[in-house]
């Protein structure tokens, strides 16, 4: 039973059935994220990419803090 169930789900994955002009690099990720019936293939890729993105986000925030500190210091010293 679960087999036919997963088969049905497989063919409803938005990432797999959507073809044609409307899809592009800008909306594809959002389409996949909003699809409740992701196939195994798209699920694995989305999970991996999401992990990568959240790590990048974290490191961006860290970098920003490091970059901001000396600049602010310089600004302060030029003001005085």
């Amino acid at each position: 039973a679960t087999d036919s169930h997963s088969k049905m789900l497989k063919y409803r994955c938005s990432g797999c059935i959507a073809v044609g002009k409307s899809l592009n690099s800008r909306n594809f990720s959002k389409l996949l994220h909003s699809c409740p019936y992701q196939c195994d293939r798209h699920k694995v890729i989305v999970e991996a990419e999401d992990r990568y993105k959240s790590e990048l986000r974290k490191s961006l925030i860290c970098n920003k803090k490091i970059l901001l500190t000396p600049r602010r210091r310089r600004q302060l010293s030029s003001e005085s």
Partner: peptide, 14 residues
């Protein structure tokens, strides 16, 4: 236009 674009996602190399 029968080719599914979604099958050609290129994820980061890592």
């Amino acid at each position: 236009n029968s080719v599914a674009l979604g099958h050609f996602i290129l994820p980061p190399a890592c």
